[in-house]
Nucleic acid binder design. Structure first.
Length: 902
DNA sequence: CATTCTTCGTAC
DNA sequence: GACGTACGAAGAATGC
């Protein structure tokens, strides 16, 4: 049996970018980023890899910039149109795609892809390897040499044969250069011999065999006019031949192993496809990966790791750690939520490579290869509780909290790779270590869910086999350690280091402390509220059933829509994707026509208060302390804000009487008070500062009622003449500006005509000319830079601004305005939190900070400290940053959170 | 039956 | 389609 020859697939990457771009036209993701070329390219590549399973493969690209051909002939390719912007934008993604697929790629400045392909072809043939040139480009026909070099176009599944080339050009592939030297190539601006076309060239080459022979025998060429042309354009002919000839001596890698396809980088590919929203590719990728590695006892990975499974080993490890200048730390917990979980393991990554894993369990777990967490941590306390060694980790807030639960305060936090990755690009979906490592190191490490599973079938980390746990955890610790210098450099390059070191890093501990403290919630109060809400719900439901003359699930938008719009025949005000909308705005409008709408609104409110708040909060009270411990997420909101979850304490009701009952269930410890400190109009003040609008500045400097002042500006009256209605409209516009609201939105909100709304907005900008200018320049700057920036230099990329889709582009414009305002507010309150924590620590006061709600900080203070705490908090918050306008803080206090609002 | 998507509503 | 940032409950739809 003869051995199948090895094959080398050389993919003409650049030409497929073009083809894919034009084939899959005008596709974008939901953010307006063009994705067609990437999709087409991915499909092409898929076909090559799946169907042909090449032994060796390389995707070859043209390098940007001039080539040696431009040096010999400046007008080379000068008539080419510039590649479309939205194609160029996709090229980095295509290169990522190739890399993530595990496929080698190549480009070399000064050369075209064709030269690299020719060089590699030549070399491969010498090695007895069959070559398939993957391209549909006619220029590459000249490489065809049946059967060792073939040319194939996967899109049409067409193999170009030698005889086809002969048919087309009258010469074998190897002589195509002579043909082209004569006729030229208008698409590349190759001159050829003027006046000689296809027919003549074929005849000449048929007769003489090659260009050189033609010129050698020029005198004997039959037609005088042809002879004349050849004579006259000899230089052009020779130049043309050099232009169309491929170089076969390009200095490129010539190691066969370098061209063997590697395994795909799973999480990177998934990340890429998710970003580009390639649903079908995602599906098939997931299937493929599940099929190929059936939860394969995951490869141990490259990280050298050891397990400290005894106290002796642990003590040795602790000693070694104590001598290190810097270590990385990765904690493994039984659950996602740090406050609610226990330590299941801990690993340390060392500077000189390798990592140690310490399997941990509850007290009395010596027997099963784990160490009791309490005992083990006691031994590690000298390492964890001191600032040396410096600690690096991916999500050190979680680490801080789980250590604190064992009485240890983690010190020496030097770098958090999760926070750094967020700061570098805060728009990402998540910052799991696998994703960040993929991007940062180009490596494929397991995600937490790869190890524990997800959804219903997820298991606690403590049930994972120790060897597997160690492999995962050490890989993570090691990755974090190696990512540190990379991320650090990137932060420097983006001038984000100061924001990182002065704000985000110290904030980690501040947040950890707040989460650890929690806030007391009155369980009985919540319970009795739940019962009250339920009673009211029952009554409301009965009324609704009476009006509808049947029972149905009021919480089902579908059933409700049937009742309202079919049975009762009410007007369809607006629609959702799946049917008529029944949201609040619609119901408010329908309330004018039918009494049922009001009752549904009441029902919805009650159901919300009971389900989302009273019941859900009750379940999250720690039975031991009676307190609720939210999680603050530092890496979620694209603007730089924090978010809060499990539970979300940043959306506790306040606007209605009923809702405030929920808020009143948050209480201080006995003998203490809750103190709430709100930044007044912080975003509008930031707008004043950024825009330098004279009227806005003046309004805040004079501490005026900003909405009244705005109304006065708009309606051309004095502030005392402003009516409540005028003020209401001005207030809506003031907020609308921050969000980039247009006439339509304002009209809806104020229930006025779009035309009136447009006039109102015009009047606003007549009053605040500086704001208009700020908006225009801010959008323009963001368009140029590709990102928006806050006062402290936080960045958010806004690719939407480059979209060809107008709606998406307008969204980009709103983001470009909103992000610096919302983000600067976030910067400032984050700094205020750090300053407040510091000031309280140094004050001797017992007051502590419990909550942050975007522009509000909530403290718990002993009654007798109230005055001192107020003074301190106000000073810290108002002095957080020197702006062109004063920052104003409003303080309130009371025996519950509802009362604490002035 | 489990998971994901959709709709709705709360906060700033 | 039209106002930015979040989180989460419940129903509906989809997939295994």
């Amino acid at each position: 049996m003869t051995e199948q020859a090895r094959t080398f697939y050389l993919v003409d990457g650049s030409s497929y970018i073009y083809r894919a771009y034009y084939a899959v036209s005008r596709l974008t993701n939901s953010r307006g980023f063009p994705t067609g070329a990437v999709l087409g390219f991915a499909q092409m590549l898929d076909k090559v890899v799946r169907e042909k399973k090449p032994d060796y493969i390389c995707v070859v690209f043209d390098a940007p910039g001039p080539t040696f051909r431009h040096e010999m002939y400046a007008p080379y390719k000068a008539t080419r149109q510039k590649a479309p912007e939205d194609m160029i934008a996709q090229i980095p993604y295509i290169k990522d795609l190739v890399r993530f697929r595990g496929i080698p790629q190549m480009e070399l400045p000064g050369y075209e892809a064709d030269d690299l392909i020719a060089t590699l072809t030549h070399w491969a043939v010498e090695q007895d390897i069959e070559v398939v040139v993957v391209s549909s480009d006619k220029d590459l026909h000249q490489l065809i040499d049946d059967p060792v070099v073939r040319q194939w176009d996967p899109q049409k599944d067409r193999v170009f044969m030698e005889w086809e080339v002969e048919d087309r050009y009258g010469v074998p592939p190897g002589r195509m250069v002579d043909y082209l030297a004569l006729v030229g190539d208008s698409s590349d601006n190759v001159p050829g011999v003027k006046g000689i076309g296809d027919k003549t060239a074929r005849q000449l080459l048929q007769e003489w065999g090659s260009l050189d022979r033609i010129y050698a025998n020029l005198a004997r060429v039959g037609s005088a006019s042809v002879r004349d042309k050849l004579e006259k354009h000899r230089e052009e002919a020779l130049l043309s031949r050099r232009l169309v000839s491929f170089r076969e001596d390009v200095p490129v890698e010539r190691k066969l192993e370098a061209f063997a396809p590697g395994p795909p980088l799973k999480s990177q590919l998934i990340g890429l496809f998710e970003e580009l929203e390639f649903r079908s590719l995602l599906d098939s990728l997931r299937k493929e990966l599940n099929a190929v590695e059936p939860a394969a006892a995951a490869p141990a990975g490259r990280t050298k790791h050891k397990i400290a499974g005894s106290m002796d080993e642990l003590r040795t490890l602790a000693e070694r750690l104590a001598g290190e200048p810097v270590v990385s730390i990765q904690v493994e917990t039984t659950r996602k939520d740090a406050m609610a979980s226990d330590l299941a393991g801990l690993s340390f990554g060392f500077e000189d490579d390798g990592a140690w894993y310490v399997p941990l369990g509850p007290d009395g777990s010596e027997g099963d290869g784990r160490l009791p967490a309490a005992v083990a941590l006691a031994a590690l306390e000298p390492v964890l509780g001191r600032s040396r060694p410096a600690k690096i980790g991916h999500d050190l807030k979680t680490a801080w909290i789980v250590f604190k639960k064992h009485g240890i305060e983690l010190r020496g936090i030097a770098f958090d790779t999760m926070v750094a990755a967020y700061l570098l690009d805060p728009g990402k979906q998540n910052y799991g270590i696998d994703r960040v490592a993929a991007e940062c190191l180009g490596e494929n490490i397991d995600s937490y869910e790869d190890v524990t599973g997800k959804g219903k079938s997820q298991v606690g980390f403590d049930t994972i086999d120790i060897g597997r746990a160690a492999a995962y955890s050490c890989a993570a610790a090691d990755a974090a350690r190696r990512m540190h210098p990379v991320l650090k450099r990137k932060l420097d390059e983006s001038r984000l280091t100061e924001l990182f070191e002065k704000i985000e890093l110290p904030l980690i501990t501040v947040l950890a402390r707040m989460e650890f403290r929690g806030i007391t919630a009155d369980a009985e109060k919540l319970e009795s509220l739940s019962i009250d809400f339920q009673k009211a719900l029952d009554r409301t439901a009965d009324t609704i059933y009476d009006l509808a003359k049947e029972k149905f699930n009021i919480q089902s938008p579908k059933q409700l829509a049937y009742i309202l719009f079919e049975k009762l025949g009410l007007r369809v005000v607006k629609k959702t994707k799946s049917g008529p909308s029944t949201d609040m705005a619609v119901l408010e409008e329908l309330a004018l026509e039918h009494p049922i709408a009001d009752h549904v609104l009441v029902f919805r409110t009650l159901a919300k208060l009971k389900g989302t708040y009273a019941d859900a909060l009750g379940k999250l009270i720690n039975p031991r302390t009676g307190r609720i411990h939210t999680s603050y997420n530092q890496t979620v909101a694209a603007t730089g804000r924090l978010s809060s979850s499990d539970p979300n304490l940043q959306n506790i009701p306040i606007r209605t009487e009923e809702g405030r009952k929920i808020r009143s269930a948050f209480i201080p410890a006995p003998g203490w008070l809750l103190l709430s400190a709100d930044y007044s109009q912080i975003e509008l003040r930031i707008l004043a500062h950024c825009s330098k609008d004279e009227h806005l500045l003046e309004a805040f400097r004079d501490d005026e009622d900003i909405h009244r002042r705005t109304a006065a500006e708009m309606f051309g009256v004095s502030p005392i003449e402003v009516t409540p209605e005028m003020r209401r409209q001005a207030k809506t516009i003031n907020f609308g500006i921050i969000y980039g609201m247009g006439p339509f939105g304002l009209a809806q909100r104020l229930r006025i005509s779009t035309k009136t709304a447009r006039t109102a907005i015009d009047k606003y900008f007549q009053g605040y000319r500086g704001v208009r200018r700020f908006i225009d320049t801010t959008i323009e700057l963001a368009r140029r830079l590709g990102y928006s920036e806050t006062l402290l230099g936080r960045r958010r990329f806004i690719p939407e601004l480059q979209s060809r889709n107008k709606t998406i582009r307008q969204l980009g414009e709103r983001l470009a305005i909103n992000t610096p305002l919302q983000g600067t507010a976030a910067d400032l309150i984050k700094k205020a939190m750090i300053d407040a924590e510091d000031a309280l620590n140094g004050s001797g006061l017992r007051t502590v900070m419990l909550l942050q709600v975007h522009d509000e900080l909530v403290f718990e203070t002993p009654r007798e400290e109230l005055a001192a705490a107020q003074e301190l908090v106000r000073r810290v918050m108002e002095d957080v940053w020197k702006l062109d306008v004063p920052l104003k803080v409003e303080l309130g206090w009371g025996d519950n959170w509802a009362e604490a609002h002035a």
